[in-house]
Design a protein around this nucleic acid. Structure first.
Length: 554
RNA sequence: GCCCCCGUAGCUCAGUGGAUUGAGAGCGCUUCCCUGCGGAGGAAGAGGCCACAGGUUCGAAUCCUGUCGGGGGUACCA
């Protein structure tokens, strides 16, 4: 990767200058910053290293830059190494070198862009994990898109990634859900049952009740209510989880594991965790409940582990769950993707890690701001009472999975976003994803037209048109984008990169004709077919990383 | 009250743990470009005191403090 190479060369240059006595022998190098200058005429990369060093050694920045540049080792990659006011060093890549990278990209194929940042670290991304009490709504889809794309990015960055969905199949919410299933079932059979106060009032539960009544008749009315509720709850759970799974598959999200919360209580995990917490002095009984004393480690409040009715609360499960993740299954790094409505919980999770004797840095809570749902400009409040929501399925059917993913992915997680279903429908044809896919389809069309022409011997050094060079340069950014997105857990950068890459292609397409039947054009045609094939590869890679399709035709 | 996130073009949003310089995109708006590979394309333009006020620095949209505005949290729900 270019950045690593430049980094290495810079260090060599500084050392060379030191050996020559041009820079002090004792010199503490700061972390080297390499960036792309905003102005193209300043080169491809720049570093403010001399500016940073100048103050320390009491010399003029420009002079330090000149010194480093003068000792810069020869590198075929670089055409120019220029010191510049007030003390930057600018690097310009050699055009010949850039042109040759087309062969490199083609040779790398599907692996082009991959980096080794993760070094195979066993990593889990847990995302969505909403209560299995109904269909997924479009707000949860943001979680899905961020989590899934991040997992893709981390894989490309060299992490060993596992995707997981945590099913809350026990606890108060689940009990409410089971109770609702019973009531809707009974109602479907003509029994006048009142809905539980905290039940789920959505239309989908009425449907479910009807289905259950149809399939099972009045079987469950003939058993004790508690048992009937339990059994109906099981069936309803199974269907709802299956529904969520299908909803997620609509937008191309798949998991390695669907983890049951209940399973934490079916072996000795929970007991073990309680023992560890007690031994750590983090457990206290009061008011009839058992508490996790987060305040002992600087938390703002304690948290209930076991409620006064004897049942463990969600936090108890969370601790057992993370014990399972880190200790039982041995994940080195865990990322939980959470909506901002869970932010208050973050400090306690970190304290929990400490209490378990684990390094809190091994757990990352990635928060995204909630999506404000609108329908024709009016805010749609998510309400369990009315069950009014905009489902993911509904949106995907209206707008298509790729547009949904692109839209939800294109904003930074920490930025709030509005989602207006009406607006989304109106603008679905203007979604930028089509711009990117169009570039891919255009290339596919060119390649189809080229037929079985063998361009494998194409000479890429012929690619010297500014638009050709610009396009290759753009492709060479892929590893940098992957590093950026992975290091900052910010997959939204991919969408902007995809646009830039497509734009560079369209500009090339305007300026450079690929196919030609003239004999004198044969060499450049073959070179350009290589370029175009490489571009197709990179576009497809980015689209797939974002979980979108790379169509051959549109 | 306290805690967290956000406030950049008409709208929706990018702008890496500061840096050479006139702050960018998509959509919308104005004008233009089809004798060749897909016009879901390309070119040009209008449109911003980067919420406001201080501070740090050679240099701030970016860092610090405060104010105002929007969202979220502060349950023996998850």
């Amino acid at each position: 990767m270019i950045l690593r190479e430049l980094n290495r060369l810079l260090k060599e240059a500084v050392e060379a200058a030191q050996r020559a006595g041009a820079l002090p022998a004792e010199l503490e190098l700061p972390e080297i910053i390499l960036e792309r200058p905003k102005q193209a005429n300043l080169g491809d990369y720049a570093t403010p290293l001399a500016l940073q060093l100048a103050g320390k050694i009491g010399r003029r920045p420009l002079e330090v830059a000149e010194t480093i540049a003068a000792h810069f080792p020869a590198a075929p990659m670089l055409a120019k190494v220029q010191p510049a006011r007030p003390g930057f060093i600018n690097f310009t890549l050699s055009q010949e070198w850039i042109a040759r990278q087309v062969d490199t990209i083609l040779a790398a194929g599907e692996t082009f862009g991959n980096i080794d940042l993760g070094k195979g670290k066993k990593t889990q991304v847990e995302f969505v994990s909403v209560n299995p009490t109904g269909p997924l709504h479009i707000g949860s889809a943001r979680n899905a898109v961020i989590g899934d794309t991040l997992a893709n990015v981390l894989q490309a960055a060299g992490y060993d990634v596992y995707r997981e969905y945590y099913i809350n199949d026990r606890g108060t919410q689940f009990d409410n859900f089971a109770a609702t299933a019973y009531v809707r079932y009974a109602q479907a059979l003509g029994i006048d049952e009142p809905m539980p106060e905290a039940g789920y009032f959505g239309q989908y539960m009425i449907e479910l009740g009807r289905q259950l009544a149809e399939e099972y008749g009045d079987t469950f009315l003939h058993m004790p209510r508690e048992e009937a509720t339990r059994q109906l709850g099981e069936i309803a759970l199974e269907r709802t989880v299956a529904g969520i799974r299908q909803d997620l598959e609509l937008i191309g999200v798949y998991y390695d594991c669907w983890f049951s919360e209940r399973s934490l209580y079916q072996d000795d995990t929970f007991q073990k965790v309680m023992e560890i917490l007690r031994a750590a002095g983090m457990v206290e009984e009061r008011e009839g409940a058992v508490w996790f004393t987060a305040t002992k480690l600087g938390g703002d409040k304690d948290e209930v582990l076991i409620r006064s009715d004897g049942t463990p609360g969600y936090f108890a499960s969370d601790i057992a769950y993370h014990y399972n993740k880190f200790v039982v299954r041995g994940f080195e790094w865990v990322i939980d993707v959470w909506g901002a409505d869970h932010q208050g919980h973050v400090p306690r999770m970190k304290i929990m890690m400490q209490a378990l004797g684990l390094d809190p840095d091994r757990l990352t809570l990635l928060l995204y701001q909630l999506v404000t749902l609108k329908r024709g400009g009016e805010v749609v409040r998510l309400s369990k009472r009315t069950g009014d929501l905009i489902t993911l399925r509904e949106v995907v059917e209206e707008v298509g999975p790729d547009a949904v993913r692109f839209f939800l992915l294109s904003r930074a997680a920490e930025s709030q976003m509005d989602f207006d279903l009406e607006l989304a429908k109106e603008q679905s044809n203007e979604n930028p994803v089509y711009y990117v896919q169009y570039a891919h389809a255009r290339i596919a069309s060119i390649l189809r037209k080229a037929g079985d022409m063998d361009y494998s011997a194409g000479d890429t050094s012929l690619l010297q048109h500014p638009s050709e060079i610009a396009l290759i340069r753009e492709m060479l950014r892929l590893p940098e984008i992957i590093e950026l997105a992975a290091a900052r857990l910010a997959p939204h950068h991919l969408t902007y990169y995809a646009m830039d890459l497509a734009s560079a292609f369209h500009a090339f397409y305007r300026d450079c004709r690929v196919l030609s039947s003239l004999p004198e054009d044969e060499a450049i045609t073959k070179a350009r077919l290589k370029l175009v094939a490489a571009t197709k590869l990179v576009l497809a890679r980015v689209l797939r990383m974002m979980g979108m399709s790379a169509p051959e035709t549109m």
